[in-house]
């Protein structure tokens, strides 16, 4: 037994009398659960602890239910609601790192604000309504607008009431969504929406409302549009535009699924399907902030020499176009030996 593992540890220690640099060293070892509990001892002292601990880089995620996730540099910490006072502050690692807490009277939105202020958080990692519940997420989204917070990823999927999303959509352009926007909602035919500012990646599953004009204005790195209404001519226009030097400087991946892609007219002077049928087969993959790959694509070049790889398929679930723009810094072009298929 040592001085630090014996009875000494049971003795109180006046932590707040530590000089700040020393206090900081101790607090750096405290996780969000401990700082939250500290805040329940004393709000005033916990504010100092939070400042010293340096939690501003932490992020928060909310999925519309009764738990909230704090993202640190290490593991994630989930604050989960319980109505049983005996379970307050109990932790479990069964399905992740959970701590059960009493939710404030104002519900998840009030807890969201509490955690933002407690940890000085400025960034939402994920905001996504799950289980059909949109109300709380929309309130949190409005809060992110009011507080000028960055939302890295906003996903709208599995919503029961489309009208809830329709009512919300005008606010979308006020949000600062930076990394990703996903939407799987099938809107009514008259629906129209234009992005003022694009995040880095968009994935729109029911994208009939997304026009060729919007695609030509899009500044995304990655664009995936399913159930689109784009036809060969739309895609031909887009790809010819892309070929101009300096056009779409961010674009790395474009994937379009549309029943209107067919073999009746050319795309970049090629009649679909557009694939490499030669041996050896070529696989091109990007492995950077995301992974994407195309097998059997056809090389196409921009006027400035930038290389893209195009593949248009007509069979399968839905006709689709895939287009990947190579960058030597993160793109691998590999020949796939003919025998590889036999291994399977």
């Amino acid at each position: 037994m040592s001085i630090l593992s014996g009875n000494l540890l049971q003795m109180p220690i006046d932590l707040l009398k530590f000089p700040n640099d020393l206090l900081r060293e101790v607090l750096k070892l405290c996780d969000p659960f401990e700082l939250y509990k500290l805040s329940k001892c004393s709000k005033k002292r916990s504010q100092k602890a939070t400042i010293l601990r340096g939690t501003k880089r932490w992020k928060i995620s909310y999925y519309g239910g009764n738990d909230m996730i704090i993202w640190t540099d290490g593991p994630n910490y989930r604050f989960k609601q319980t109505d049983n006072p005996e379970d307050y502050f109990k932790t479990t690692r069964r399905y992740g790192n959970y701590m059960y807490i009493e939710f404030p009277k104002g519900g998840p939105v009030e807890l969201f604000v509490y955690l933002l202020e407690l940890f000085g958080i400025r960034t939402v990692e994920f905001l996504e309504p799950s289980f059909g519940e949109f109300d709380n997420v929309s309130k949190v989204a409005k809060l992110s607008i009011d507080r000028k917070m960055e939302v890295e990823a906003f996903r709208i999927r599995n919503i029961e009431e489309v009208q809830d999303v329709l009512d919300f959509m005008p606010l979308l352009n006020q949000m600062d969504i930076t990394r990703e926007f996903q939407c799987s909602i099938k809107f009514p035919p008259e629906f129209h929406f234009e992005f003022v500012k694009y995040p880095s990646q968009i994935y729109i599953r029911e994208s009939s409302w997304f026009t060729i004009g919007q695609l030509l204005d899009c500044t995304c790195v990655r664009i995936e549009l399913d159930n689109s209404t784009f036809n060969n001519r739309d895609l031909d226009v887009f790809l010819h535009e892309w070929k101009n030097a300096g056009a779409f400087p961010n674009l790395r991946v474009l994937k379009i699924e549309s029943e209107k892609i067919d073999n009746q007219s050319p795309i970049l002077e090629m009649i679909p399907p557009i694939t490499n049928v030669n041996n050896p087969r070529i696989e091109v993959s990007i492995n950077n902030k995301f992974y994407y790959h195309i097998l059997d694509g056809v090389p196409v070049n921009k006027d400035d020499g930038t290389e893209g790889w195009l593949k248009v398929e007509l069979g399968g679930y839905s006709p689709r176009l895939q287009f990947l723009i190579a960058d030597p810094a993160d793109t691998v072009v590999e020949e796939i030996p003919e025998d590889d298929d036999d291994d399977w």
């Binding site: 707040l16 401990e34 509990k37 502050f89």
Partner: peptide, 16 residues
Amino acid sequence: MVKGKSPEEIREIWMI
């Protein structure tokens, strides 16, 4: 010292 402790216990241990 405060791992797994309740707020009240933390308050006592760290004299907050």
